[in-house]
């Protein structure tokens, strides 16, 4: 009996180790690369590099950022772009999903197109949006032929504009399918039965939407929009290509300072990166909070 008990104990101890063994390779990659990258960035942003003689950490990079005229407008612009893109994409995706569910035919077509869009790089989407929406793009040309405008400048300025409409359009185009696919998947996880039940219990279509469908979709919607919010906050290519000359969104500002010939601006670039990271980590925690609530419900 004691031997058996010991064996069992060993087995349990082994079982307790199993998940960690399975996770080990992943942790070996993620911890040094991701957490390590962030930690190294944090040290550098505080000018802390003992080996090359910088052994008194300071906030010089951060205070330089605050003195930089471009930083605050850049932060505001980035936040505005991320929030606007996320809200518009989420609402449209929600509408699209509700619409798709009422379709009889064409569901598979739209499913395919949503998935196709998911595979298209943002960069390509940006090129397409410029061709369509610039003041001399396809829509402006159509407007001219339809007699609405006489010259390009009469067409609303949508690309390279201070309001960043071009950037937001690209994000809406790319993220709407992402959110919609997540919502569709979440609906398929059993939500439709509840609706059927509600219907048989005599709920009106509006009541089903309000009290069954929307609450059912909400966690997935919030979680996916949090991912989109974090992405649009930190993406570089799109604002680099479609942004106005001033102010540059944070990731563009960070890259510019990072590649500045003046080495002194590198800590500033990394400080911006850290600010981006902290804000997106806040998104992670919000996300965790939201999904935990979902599990508890």
């Amino acid at each position: 009996m004691p031997r058996l008990g010991r064996l069992r104990a060993r087995k349990i101890r082994f079982q307790r180790l199993t998940p960690w063994l399975l996770l080990l390779p992943a942790l070996i990659v993620i911890v040094p690369l991701f957490a390590g990258g962030l930690a190294a960035g944090l040290l550098r942003s505080f000018n802390y590099m003992p080996v090359i003689g910088l052994d008194s950490p300071n906030l010089a990079a951060y205070s330089a950022l605050l003195r930089d005229d471009e930083f605050l407008p850049s932060l505001l612009l980035t936040t505005y772009i991320a929030l606007t893109s996320t809200v518009i994409a989420s609402l449209l995706a929600l509408g699209a999903v509700l619409m798709i569910r009422r379709l009889n035919a064409g569901r598979s077509l739209i499913n395919f197109l949503l998935q196709l869009n998911l595979t298209i790089p943002h960069l390509v989407g940006a090129v397409g949006i410029v061709y369509l929406f610039s003041q001399s793009g396809s829509f402006a040309r159509l407007a001219l032929h339809a007699g609405f405008i006489n010259e390009p400048q009469q067409f609303p300025a949508l690309i390279y504009d201070p309001a960043a409409i071009g950037i937001i359009l690209v994000y809406v185009w790319k993220e709407l399918p992402f959110i919609a696919l997540i919502l569709l998947a979440s609906l398929q996880q059993g939500g439709e039965e509840f609706e059927a039940v509600a219907r048989t219990l005599g709920a009106s279509r509006w009541q089903v939407l309000r009290f069954v469908t929307l609450p059912n979709l909400l966690p997935a919607l919030l979680a996916s929009s949090m991912i989109v919010l974090a992405f649009t906050f930190g993406a570089y290519e799109i604002p680099a290509l479609l942004g106005a000359y001033y102010p540059a969104p944070l990731p563009v500002l960070a890259y510019r300072k990072f590649t500045d010939v003046d080495l002194a601006s590198r800590p500033e670039a990394i400080a911006i990166s850290m600010i981006i990271a902290v804000l997106s980590l806040i998104f992670v925690l919000l996300y965790a909070h939201i999904t935990r609530r979902q599990i508890e419900n």
């Binding site: 040290l43 590099m49 003992p50």
Partner: peptide, 9 residues
């Protein structure tokens, strides 16, 4: 870890 990798003289 960082003093080894990052801060090699």
């Amino acid at each position: 870890f960082f003093s080894i990798t990052l801060l090699t003289p």
